[in-house]
Design a protein around this nucleic acid. Structure first.
Lengths: 190, 190
DNA sequence: TGAGACCTGTGATAAACGTCACAAAATTAA
DNA sequence: TTAATTTTGTGACGTTTATCACAGGTCTCA
């Protein structure tokens, strides 16, 4: 829980009282590799603060899967539009390694928000952070070629390259795995 | 102002009192064609509710421009990350036709939010809507080829195809103008 | 420790797309 | 209305990328 408290306090003012009140909404949960945090078609009822391990979001199309994001320690994973609007999720979130998360229950979080302004501000900040992240990757895909997207990840998200396999990364970057292998080769030689 | 009030009430409960209080934060403003709502490098201090006309967001790269979004009547245009975090905008927003907007001033809106829970909820909903829209287009670019992106726009955003020229649309879709012209031709023949 | 499952690299080939060049059509401004 | 400007269509050509096929490497777990 220490990591989470530090994370929260890096976002917003958060008193010890608020932290105690927030506890009701929190559960620690362990996921095995390949276990689902959220399935396609489910309504997302939680924010997952990742304490250890990592997970990915992906959807299925014509039988094969496409990765849409990777989430590591000290980040929040969720489907923000499903969580916010109560719609069914169009993608799944699954643990890529053994993973421990602190789960924010939506209903209990909303209850607590009504009673405590700091918890309310925390929720707002989490949504804003998520929107910013969404915009970052949206921009990435708009603006850059596959090779440039890889370079961007190397600079801004090197942890992804270290921990995610080439095939998984290719699916995320939107290129064939063979192409990514060749890009990497070109870059090593150059 | 009637359009705006209807728009707000489609999002959230909003009493006549809240509406009166909100007025302080609002200004009606007219933009000529090619006039800027937001310039690259500026900090975004406003939400622009579009009453008539339309505008686009774009950035410049290696001398040529790339469109990132189009915003029509009854939508909010802004740079949400600049507005939220006070960072300089990496893109510009410019009127594509004569345009009238109702401008929400950030500072006054924040003042009003502190005094009125409905105005606070309105702000939160606007951010959520924006995040959802961002995610929609992020997904579009992740998931689909140029041709599929065009089909998506035809189904979900036909107003864009009617009002935005082929060249402008090509820049938005991330394909050469010639390619878009050929895709369109293929689709007419098929 | 050995078999099966997954991951990576690489060649051959085809399809998609970008770029350049130029003409025709449409729009805008004087 | 006409001239200038912008937008669109189209052919030729080269580059990039996807796809298919297969070989070798690595990991996992019974």
């Amino acid at each position: 829980m220490d990591n989470l408290l530090r994370y929260i306090r890096s976002l917003t003012n958060f008193s010890d009282t608020s932290w105690k009140m927030l506890q009701d909404a929190l559960t620690k949960k362990a996921f095995k590799k390949n276990e689902f945090l959220l399935k396609e078609g489910q309504v997302c009822q939680s924010l997952f603060y990742i304490d250890s391990g990592y997970c990915k979001s992906y959807y299925t199309i014509d039988g094969d899967i496409k990765n849409t994001g990777f989430f590591f320690e000290n980040e929040i994973a969720t489907n923000i539009s499903s969580f916010g609007n109560g719609q069914k999720s169009t993608y799944a979130i699954v643990a890529c390694e053994a993973l421990t998360a602190i789960v924010f229950d939506k209903d209990k979080l909303f209850q607590a928000s009504k009673q405590n302004i700091e918890i309310e501000a925390l929720g707002r900040n989490c949504i804003r952070l998520f929107a910013t992240r969404q915009e970052e990757f949206s921009t990435l895909f708009n603006r850059y070629s596959a090779q440039e997207r890889l370079e961007y990840l190397e600079r801004k998200h090197p942890e992804m390259l270290q921990r995610v396999s080439l095939s998984q990364l290719a699916s995320f970057l939107g290129v064939a795995r063979e192409t990514l292998s060749r890009i990497r080769k070109r870059r090593v030689l150059a």
